[in-house]
Design a protein around this nucleic acid. Structure first.
Lengths: 338, 338
DNA sequence: CTGAAAGCGCTTACAG
DNA sequence: CTGAAAGCGCTTACAG
């Protein structure tokens, strides 16, 4: 069907090697006149090089794979994944790497490791993997370069993360300064580093400020909006209501805001709320959401750069911690007098 | 380096074909006892099938490529692209297709067609391509299956689009009902179907309602937030200010909102505004943005399904028009009396 | 039933 | 300088 080097070589009665060298512009020299004739006929015949064949024979694919968060069932839907992806892609443009999304991903299948280690990619980016991921273990054993972004692994691979403790401190300090003394926390998935670290940081910082801590003020979530919605009931029903709530990510805060709107519960009057990640939606919700900014696009960018460095045989830093910053918006006000 | 079928066959003193058939479970039968022994040793030796080799010999890659909007310089950043991608990916999960993002994309390069037609993918999804895209022409000539989403092409390939006229009518009708008689429009890129169709629909619907049209009320944009910002100055400076502005997409409306906030111009009191696309940010901005909803994720899903059908030899519909709906929020109020 | 071999379309070390 | 051939690691039609 498709035109091959062989077809061209036959047409011109020369060898495939010469055609190959001519079309690739090297490394073996080809007389200019002949080279032009080859390029010309290749064009006439509608020749298009087969990349798979090239990849197979050279062993280079110029492709990196992106592996979705194992926690999220619907893959690429969240802004977390998307912003990181967009950062990664912008580097790909420069470094000339294409990105393969393993969308045929199926958590249920134990042979998934086979799929991502089947030779199509030169390296992998894991977005927010779990610490105990069996996938990671298989990949680490395979020797294929990889980095993780948004979470640290137990393997000696570059991790691009944010400073959770700093971020939480900024949030708690802000609330404390305004006079909040009853601060609650809706946690993330506690199997993840981010979920656990943020919870611990909240507890440590509350203690640092000498603020009270109650069991009812910790609501266990898992990074999904749904748990934010569920939290509304919880915090309304407990005896001692908090005046401020710190969410482990924005998505849960959005769920909370939405549910409050549905039930006509005033925000920020009833609860001051703070999110984490500062995804695009924060600036645009009502009330706009004060949030700890984690520079996701920059992190995706750094992840891709680290991966390219690894592939290139360099040794990038194993830990790339990005600073957080508190973005203040309308969702936080001083506690109402009562 | 890596273990191959050949290595296994040597170890067991049998032929590669037998090993291949055993590991693939067919099509040629292999005695159960032998098959188990082969699987066993393959496992022991850490065999991992090389997908590139398989792709090359079978001619199937089980991969589809996604080509970014040519209008947008920074590729995967916009929510438009991202929501469509997420819809497409969710189908990939079911149909077992992986998604290749051509992130090494470079508009400047004329040989880009070579890159996307190099045998790595079985089909292509074009996100909002321009009508006159030279890329499309090359792809259409190549015979590789493709679909476009968010725009129609001149080629007989499935187009997954929304009903621009319906959407604009919904928006204009809504404004007219509230009493607006001075309605402006910030256009999209007029080289695109969406940009042009929406402009024409606005003009037609204004006429239908017998509303005045002024040259100053058409501000030429190109789908980027920046033009929304620029529009603020324009509409403040012209003699006859409109009372409502219809933006060709949300991004420009966001830019407008942001600039108004910066300059302390009250919304929606000063201008009622309507966006188009209803991306996630609309529900969360202040004032929350009334917008024409284009079901992007569903469209991405339909695009992927149509593409899979094409690849499978079926003939999906050439035009898949999704209905729009006006999502009413806070950014539209009746015109102020004056 | 099983093995030897050709083929997928490139790249490149090896002869001449 | 250029051609013939081996090789990348699979799949599969062809012999035996």
């Amino acid at each position: 069907m498709a035109v091959t080097l062989r077809d061209i070589s036959k047409r011109l009665n020369i060898s495939v090697s010469t055609v190959c060298y001519a079309l690739n512009g090297g490394p073996r020299p080809v007389p200019e006149e002949l080279k032009q004739r080859i390029i010309q006929t290749a064009h006439e015949m509608g020749y298009r090089p087969n990349r798979l064949a090239k990849m197979l024979s050279t062993g280079r694919t110029h492709t990196v794979g992106v592996v979705p968060t194992e926690l999220s069932q619907n893959f690429a839907s969240g802004p977390f994944f998307q912003e990181i992806l967009s950062g990664a892609i912008s580097v790909g443009q420069v470094q000339r790497y294409d990105v393969l999304l393993f969308s045929s991903y199926d958590q249920a299948e134990p042979e998934f490791a086979q799929t991502i280690l089947d030779g199509r990619v030169e390296g992998l980016i894991f977005v927010a993997p779990r610490r105990d991921s069996r996938l990671l273990e298989a990949v680490a054993n395979s020797g294929l370069p990889f980095v993780s972004v948004g979470a640290e692994t137990v393997y000696p691979a570059p991790a691009i993360i944010c400073d959770n403790v700093e971020g939480i401190n900024q949030a708690v300090d802000h609330l404390a300064e305004l006079g909040h003394r009853k601060i609650a926390h809706v946690t993330g998935e506690l199997d993840s580093r981010d979920g656990r670290e943020r919870l611990e940081a909240v507890q440590a910082r509350l203690q640092h400020h000498g603020l009270p801590q109650m069991r009812d003020w910790i609501f266990r979530g898992a990074f999904h909006p749904h748990q934010g919605e569920a939290a509304v009931n919880h915090f309304l029903e407990i005896k001692e209501r908090p005046t401020a709530i710190l969410f482990a990510n924005d998505e849960m805060a959005f769920g909370f805001i939405k549910e409050c709107a549905r039930r006509a519960i005033l925000l920020p009057e009833t609860f001051s709320i703070v999110g984490f990640d500062d995804v695009a939606g924060c600036a645009q919700c009502y009330p706009s959401l004060t949030s700890v900014r984690q520079p996701l696009a920059d992190m995706g960018l750094a992840a891709m750069q680290a991966l390219c460095a690894l592939i290139g045989g360099q040794k990038p830093a194993l830990r790339h911690v990005f600073p957080t910053s508190l973005i203040r918006r309308q969702s936080v006000v001083p506690p109402s007098q009562s």
